[in-house]
């Protein structure tokens, strides 16, 4: 670990200390400050000039039609794009004021603070218990593992359903339970932010509502960014919404995502400023 990594951790600790009081007032320091963010895959643009702020203990939703760069954007928040060959990120992503793309920042450290839950539940082929304990063990967790597993499962609203089958395979759980297990696994390493990329799109309506309820619980303690193609879901669960849209250059045969509008979710769904947002949320295209 080098200097940058250490200062990132220090910065986070300072922020956490500062947020023990009442809920952050408007204008509180952002969790993420994104400025002029762009992503290219193999030299082709995928996302251009995105600027937005993610506030602490809020749910920020990213919506937009297929191919507008929603997943590309959310993957910038914990450097998941690093794992894609040929991906280049430009612009700034500041996490508690610190550039996570600065030379010397360890992406693994970033991902420990910024957890992620994916579209398809992806538990390890291990027991329920081992799934939750996995990250903590790797991190050399010294505390009471049973207690950590129980606490994480309770926070993920799954404990009552699995407490009698902790040693059973996680793969035997239902899809909705598996997704909540993945959330429990993500929060077991005590992250600060949880990124969710279409967390409910593979689930039935009841399991979806459970995940949405859970998100409301989780935002008391974590900041959440969610990508969803279900804009009603964004409307129901989020505090702020970013609407992305695809721009096309026919001549060059290129298309890329841009941020059209970012604001309070109630404004986006009752009085959007941009005609394209209005057309999208009212179902006129997309």
């Amino acid at each position: 670990m080098n200097e940058n990594t250490i200062s990132l951790e220090e910065n986070i600790t300072a922020t956490e200390r500062g947020s023990e009081g009442p809920a952050p007032a408007f204008g509180a320091p952002s969790v993420f400050t994104v400025r002029g963010l762009g992503v290219h895959y193999g030299g082709l643009p995928a996302l251009r000039d995105v600027s937005l702020d993610v506030q602490p203990r809020e749910i920020t939703a990213i919506i937009g039609p297929s191919g507008c760069g929603k997943s590309t954007l959310i993957r910038c928040f914990n450097r998941m794009n690093d794992l894609i060959p040929g991906a280049e990120v430009s612009g700034e992503v500041l996490y508690h004021g610190e550039d996570i793309y600065a030379a010397g920042v360890d992406p693994v450290t970033v991902r420990r603070r910024i957890g992620m839950v994916f579209q398809r539940p992806n538990p390890f082929p291990k027991s329920v218990y081992d799934n939750v304990a996995f990250g903590a063990r790797i991190n050399g967790y010294k505390g009471d593992m049973d207690e950590l597993v129980e606490r994480s499962l309770r926070r993920a609203a799954l404990w009552d359903e699995v407490k009698s089958k902790l040693r059973k395979s996680a793969l035997a759980l239902s899809g909705g339970q598996q997704q909540r297990l993945c959330i429990a696994r993500a929060i077991a390493v005590e992250p600060d932010v949880i990124l969710m990329d279409e967390p409910a799109s593979a689930l039935d309506p009841i399991a979806t509502v459970r995940i949405e309820d859970l998100m409301q619980e989780l935002k008391q303690e974590y900041s959440i960014v969610i990508v969803t193609h279900n804009m009603q879901q964004a409307a129901r669960v989020s505090d702020r919404t970013a609407f992305l849209y695809t721009e096309v250059d026919e001549a060059a045969g290129q298309r890329w995502g841009i941020l059209v509008e970012f604001g309070d979710t109630s404004d986006i769904f009752t009085r959007p400023r941009d005609k394209r947002t209005e057309d999208y949320v009212s179902g006129r295209f997309g």
Partner: peptide, 9 residues
């Protein structure tokens, strides 16, 4: 109330 109609279906 309007926000609920728009957001909560």
């Amino acid at each position: 109330a309007l926000a609920m109609l728009a957001q909560q279906q």
